[in-house]
Nucleic acid binder design. Structure first.
Lengths: 150, 150
DNA sequence: TAATATCAGATGTTAAAACATACTTTAAGT
DNA sequence: ACTTAAAGTATGTTTTAACATCTGATATTA
């Protein structure tokens, strides 16, 4: 269904305004479809994001390094890490070099959970499945360009 | 800056996965930039969205009609409307035809606020300003296509 | 018309995010 | 070394979102 019909707006003032509205709308549309994947394992998107960051890190990383790499840089990273600790999916120890920081690592249990979720990745990709390979490249190129402004 | 560098991920498994990540990331990037516009008038994006829906409506509309037209369909629409009522930006009365529903309308004060914010619209567009007109059309076409899948 | 189902909205509760502040450790400046 | 500033994280508080339940109004069906 078209954006115009979905939100009952007959026309947009400019194409640029429509881009803004379109991204908000598409983000929500996508979220709706991704939600069920995470609910299955009783995990939130932010928690999943952090787990993946930790798996991708070659060494233990600190809370602020995690935040830098997050898709949405939240103020609340340390408490999300704590929630993952409660679930035994990650662990943290005080950094020996700098006692202000903590070394956060993913646990074997956390890795197992991610491996389980990896199985869904193909299904996740299907959320963007209406696009051809060339389309996808194009979207990525254009969104990257958009963010170049600063 | 490229998405890869921003989130410290060297490569994406597929272009389609990157689309998903890119939309999440761009949405947050954009939000960060839009936030200040709304903070100026002490209003949230959802509240702004509802005000615009009400201004665009030719007749009073109900809470559920508002929800249908929102960019993110939230369960909590009736309480957001109430917050707008507290600010005297909208008003609601029980619908005479069907007493289950309410007729929500924007107040003159709400219109004034929107007019004030209209002045920022051009600045808002600048968030997507790195794109040419053709780029913008392309993004819109591709995002619309992506959502066609269901 | 009586009984039941459905719809619209309000409200209560719980979980998460946003914002501010405090605490501890390190770095910088004198 | 002492003072001050800054970094990194933890914690308290307030606001908002998410989910479930409840109430009253209309629609449906027997």
């Amino acid at each position: 269904m078209s954006l115009e019909k979905d939100i009952n707006q007959t026309k947009f003032r400019t194409e640029h305004q429509k881009v803004i509205i379109n991204i908000i709308y598409t983000y929500n549309w996508m979220n709706e479809r991704l939600k069920s994947f995470f609910e299955k394992e009783d995990i939130t998107q932010q928690q999943f994001n952090i787990l993946r960051i930790l798996r991708g890190a070659v060494t233990p990383i600190s809370t602020s390094q995690i935040r830098e790499r997050m898709l949405d840089k939240m103020s609340d990273t340390s408490r999300i890490v704590d929630r993952l600790i409660t679930k035994s999916l990650v662990k943290k120890i005080i950094c020996s070099g700098d006692k202000r920081m903590v070394d956060v690592t993913i646990t074997p249990k956390g890795r197992k959970l991610l491996e389980k979720l990896d199985a869904f990745e193909l299904t996740m990709d299907a959320v963007a499945g209406a696009l051809t390979e060339a389309d996808a490249k194009n979207v990525n190129k254009l969104l990257d360009k958009m963010r170049l402004s600063s």
